[in-house]
Design a protein around this nucleic acid. Structure first.
Lengths: 339, 339
DNA sequence: CTGAAAGCGCTTACAG
DNA sequence: CTGAAAGCGCTTACAG
């Protein structure tokens, strides 16, 4: 392949001339439109290849069609949720050669507004808003000239479409796995009580237990989403003297703290007590001792679905409401010892 | 503020008409060019505000000037290095209202080439390549029509400009901190031997020790950048019977494994042995027991510097070679107990 | 200091 | 099936 960029980049007209056709015909040929003689199309394609022609997406975007760009507006780049979602978005968009503007509002509303303006100014084909919590949030704007999809978080405007995680189902399947593997005295340690993630997960846990005629050995313990809280809560639980054979944690970070705390107290996992997390934060889960069983929230898939829905919306779909994606169990050693 | 987008978005010509001037004058006024009557400028600015005018960046980009976009090409979105660098880039670019295309090549060369084409096609003002290792890598292309800066990794073409981490300095200051706080029998456990990060960090450690008339209690131990290796290496070290009062680890992950291993063996940190990491991966370092002293590699700053250099390059700077950024010590409890 | 005109590099009706 | 012309929404010499 010849170097496309020594000197000035070749333009459509250069390709057209080389193929002996007009610019309009070259354009149609290159864009796989109908009504072009196959032989002509071939000549144009060859010419483009020979010249190393790369179309100017800016000029193309001006014509009014798609710009082939999408904005991802996040408030949680530092957290661990945005990244897998972003990768899923890229997976889905890459197929159509769409590129992603990544904008981090850093939790600043004014900054978010400015970034929305910047995105609109660049005529993105759509915006995906990635929140740091599953709780509802105000929409980024009304009557925006581009479709908007909320991912992970959800918009509190029922006219918007949001794709989120099914927290209740995550809690449900986590509890199911514990009960199915023979546990019946389950304690539940979770994160910040006001978060819908805490509440919904607990609901799911309790629903499964009720289905099986069981209940938690004591009320759920809420704190924050940290290892420190996991350690503290486990210590409190052990000292309470309550009997338990499993701890279902609201997150992997909490679970890791719980594991360390149990280890320190000489309580064997999983033989004495099974421990389960939620998130499948791999670097944490795999390096726990023992490795942590957990629920994968399928965030990358969430990103792919969000991108797909955005594409559908830009094609006129008027879907609204919240679409919940189920998580799936990942079994490691903290619930079932490896053979 | 009126809703800018009910109906069709206002254009420059709408602003011009409302202000009673021509489009060219409106353009000059809005872009803070010279030679516009202050009163006229004011009228145009008011009109724009009243209409909620957001300029069409696509049209502006076509004119030939800047597009106000930059590409960040990474191969390591999953890793923990890309993210802080990305945030730094955004910090620096946001000031000039430049937006970032985030492209993850996923370590695939063909994909990387395609993404470079996509970026060029969108006429980005520059590209920042963020590598997953500090080792040299081949350039993403030759004679690209836009400036390119390498961040974290470096290009093996001496004509390119790369901004990287000063690994030798990081090792040096880590060792300095240990020696300054009274340690003299230092062991060194690091990551993959072939990585320049391992090699340079070790060199820095040895240089500081030599300056102080000391040497490592045994040859450096290399493995991989994981907690598992940290645990294994610490076990080997303890069982060797070698005396030591500090372990300098090549990364925070390794250090965390080391800490867990020492804890398990009843060796007190920091009273018996001080432990030090490198990276300042906060979620890991703060949740270690005790909290981990380490070296912050200043990745966010690295991102800011890369963006600044890109801006300079697009203004004609011909800077080349590698610019190394120093790390800085973060003292927590694993080397000095808190009072 | 202001405005008419040309142009950025494409795509899209429209006519042939 | 092909091409001349207009247009996308701006900016930039250039003339006044």
């Amino acid at each position: 392949m010849a170097d496309a960029f020594s000197g000035t980049a070749p333009q459509l007209i250069d390709v057209a001339r080389r193929a002996g056709v007009s610019a309009s015909t070259a354009s149609k040929a290159l864009n796989a439109k109908a009504d072009v003689n196959p032989a002509t199309r071939q000549r144009v394609e060859s010419a483009a290849r020979e010249l190393g022609y790369v179309p100017n997406a800016i000029a193309r975007g001006l014509t009014g069609g798609r710009t082939g760009t999408v904005g991802v507006l996040t408030s949680d780049l530092e957290g661990r949720f945005a990244l897998p979602i972003l990768m899923g978005v890229e997976d889905a968009l890459g197929i159509d050669r769409v590129l992603t503007f990544l904008c981090d509002a850093r939790g600043d509303e004014a900054r978010e507004k400015r970034l929305v303006d910047e995105l609109v100014s660049r005529r993105v084909d759509g915006i995906i808003v990635v929140g740091k919590q599953t709780d509802p949030r105000p929409p980024i704007g009304r009557n925006l000239p581009v479709p908007v999809i909320y991912a992970y978080c959800m918009s509190d405007d029922p006219a918007d479409l949001s794709i989120s995680v099914d927290n209740a189902q995550a809690g449900f399947v986590a509890a199911q796995h514990l009960v199915d593997s023979g546990r019946s005295k389950i304690a539940h340690i979770s994160g910040e009580a006001p978060h819908s993630a805490s509440q919904r997960r607990t609901e799911g846990v309790q629903k499964l237990l009720a289905n099986r005629g069981l209940e938690l050995v004591q009320p759920p313990m809420y704190g924050d989403w940290s290892e420190g809280w996991g350690r503290a809560a486990a210590a409190i639980l052990v000292q309470s003297g309550k009997e338990f054979d499993a701890i279902l944690c609201g997150s992997d970070q909490i679970a890791r703290g719980v594991l360390d705390s149990l280890l320190e107290r000489g309580i064997a996992v999983p033989s004495d007590v099974a421990v389960m997390g939620i998130d499948n934060w791999v670097v944490l889960a795999e390096n726990s001792r023992p490795a942590l069983s957990t629920v994968d929230l399928q965030l990358q898939k969430l990103g792919r679905v969000a991108a797909t829905r955005l594409f559908e919306a830009s094609n006129g779909s008027k879907a609204a409401g919240v679409e919940y994606l189920p998580g799936s169990i990942v079994i490691r050693d903290s619930t079932i010892p490896r053979l």
